[in-house]
Design a protein around this nucleic acid. Sequence first.
DNA 1: CTGTAAGCGAGACGGTACGTCCTGTCTTATC
DNA 2: GATAAGACAGGACGTACCGTCTCGCTTACAG
Lengths: 216, 216, 216, 216
Amino acid sequence: MSSPSARGRRGRGRRAADQVRQEILQAAGDLLLESGMAGFTVEKVAALAGASRVTVHKWWPSKGALAFDGYFTVVASTLDDPDTGDVATDLTTQLRAFVHLMRDTRAGLVLRELIGHAQIDPELSTALRERYALPRAQRFIDTLERAKRKGQLRADVNSEDIVCQLWGACYFQLLVTGRPPLTDEFVTSIVRNMLVGIRTGPPTADDAGRRPAGVS
Amino acid sequence: MSSPSARGRRGRGRRAADQVRQEILQAAGDLLLESGMAGFTVEKVAALAGASRVTVHKWWPSKGALAFDGYFTVVASTLDDPDTGDVATDLTTQLRAFVHLMRDTRAGLVLRELIGHAQIDPELSTALRERYALPRAQRFIDTLERAKRKGQLRADVNSEDIVCQLWGACYFQLLVTGRPPLTDEFVTSIVRNMLVGIRTGPPTADDAGRRPAGVS
Amino acid sequence: MSSPSARGRRGRGRRAADQVRQEILQAAGDLLLESGMAGFTVEKVAALAGASRVTVHKWWPSKGALAFDGYFTVVASTLDDPDTGDVATDLTTQLRAFVHLMRDTRAGLVLRELIGHAQIDPELSTALRERYALPRAQRFIDTLERAKRKGQLRADVNSEDIVCQLWGACYFQLLVTGRPPLTDEFVTSIVRNMLVGIRTGPPTADDAGRRPAGVS
Amino acid sequence: MSSPSARGRRGRGRRAADQVRQEILQAAGDLLLESGMAGFTVEKVAALAGASRVTVHKWWPSKGALAFDGYFTVVASTLDDPDTGDVATDLTTQLRAFVHLMRDTRAGLVLRELIGHAQIDPELSTALRERYALPRAQRFIDTLERAKRKGQLRADVNSEDIVCQLWGACYFQLLVTGRPPLTDEFVTSIVRNMLVGIRTGPPTADDAGRRPAGVS
DNA sequence: CTGTAAGCGAGACGGTACGTCCTGTCTTATC
DNA sequence: GATAAGACAGGACGTACCGTCTCGCTTACAG
């Protein structure tokens, strides 16, 4: 018997479901990194995988869902959780890793397109949120909560809001204003802003809710 | 002579270019708000405007470009620049207006799709950056710079970074984590975080400009 | 289960290829006889057949090829081979049948247009030659060869040339000089001319092999 | 004053009608010989002539009419009428000249397409008949009538029918069966067939009306 | 060890949209 | 005042995907 693997298949009959799935995902990821979201087509993926469009359709209801799964099949997603004891350092490390991915790798470019497409494709939107954004945000939140417990951060700030203000700042650059900067200095800057604030002068006793007296 | 206006046309020949353009833009905007980016089609726009696809193609090279122009034809873009004298108030006002648009109106939904589509369509990406994002960011920056001059904000912070951290926080919610919150409280929270920072404890003497002693 | 035939279809999926082909051909033939080559359009054929333009394109590379096939689907092409024993009679019979078709029927008009279109469309040109002209010419040649064997015709004449001179005479009227005559008398005349020649004077004993004296 | 001739015009105003006409015709002829009937377009002709489509339309109601006029503007049509005193020679000469044109020159190819297009375009059909086919046929008929008067041809044959059987034979090759042969030998053959007939046996005294006795 | 049925590929189909080409009509500005 | 330049609607073209559906094959599992 010959090995039933390899891209070019000959027969028609049934194959193990997992094998088919895997080949489709690999093909999807390859195509995605090669052509970007524009040239990404169910038809091409099926052809690449030596599968039938029907089969692809059976498991992935939309182009977006397939692209998403393909992406994470190909792009190894290492979720390391640095803990140096200092918040600023930990946050900066995580952000820089992200910025590097988005700025310097093909995968970053694709991920950007993926997020873009998610605005139209609800399937992809859900997948992206639940299986990409939230898990990563959670790691970030963990870092923040740890810092709170250590007394490095105020206890009354909402960690999720911080995530928005740090990660969101990067995404904003990527998705809305265009991508040129996104330097390490930018990361340093926004972390510092976040930590110490941008206001001048001696803080009043109730910064947490009010505006300082003496300012009209 | 009869008025040559109105949607239903009679002959075949030429119409004033500007009139055609305007009708196409109006149709594009209408269709966009009605069907969203999914059902938005050059073909339908042309039909709605009583125009020919060729004519549409002549002026708008891509679906995205047409959608963008149509959007701003229909969505009145009021760029008022509040100046109450207090940074926090001004920033909050601007952000809340934006949040309201994105959260409560059909236009917000469409704008989100537009930004999404821009990740794939370079034409749209450029248009969006230059004719939407940058002008609006500039108003924000103006507010920040004014506050700097008044001594309300530290002079060493980069205003563009602040824009990223405030607007970006909102966009992040909308585009990446899904939309549920985006409340007024969220806006209040991120502005306060931004102003006073999230760090605890007695500020050191040289907190990047200094933070006051005695922060609660 | 209900019969899956009939024009009005329900689902989207596949129909038997042959059925689709047949319906397209029928529609093509119908449209051709109704509107002539001018109003004949791939789009209309597809609509009439309840088929998709793509499907039509798959099998018929050009408008001409489709028209040709449609024509012979609708126009029954009876190729009877008369054999009365007398050449003149047989030839006259065949030519009159052809003349009748071209002069008195809608199909004749269409065939004329088809031949015209073939001058521009190589696909159609080939089809017309191989699947229309040649088979019909062959029947004519058979008649001539039979007559040769019987000694009714000179053995040294080229049968194909005769076909050109008889059929060609009719086509010439139709295609070049305009169509008015093409009467039965015309047929009688050209057959007689062909058989006995148009030269005057006492025939020499061996006209069959030589050219008349005086012709260089 | 600058010369208003030359292909590339710059101004817009009025030019002498004849000049415009002539430039259009020249452009039409050039384009026709270059691209054939397929690539022949009113638009391209107008562009080539530096004229407006409207102007072209004013004088030539259809693409066919324009092509026809353009053709004869460019292709010099020499109508020499040979008279050697011998019919066979004269006929052969005329036919060979025609065959040469059609077989060996670009103009022949175009003329074939022109005749083809005439089957669809009535304007062209009329023009072709009245200003091309009939005049040329007349010269041929003149030759035949001259031969009749000299007693070389039987007086009871219809000259027009002979034209059909000789020219028609050539056109038939060109238009219907495909073009390969059309040799000088073919011409020789059909002229001889025409003159002496293809029947065997000694001609009876009244070949002109009856079939020979003894042939059933 | 064999029969059966589930799962699959191949591929055609209707449909929607695309971008292009050409036509005939109409307007405007020019000469 | 005839003209070119140019823009417009309309209609057809050929292409690309999509999602659906029917085949016929093959393999995996059940008996």
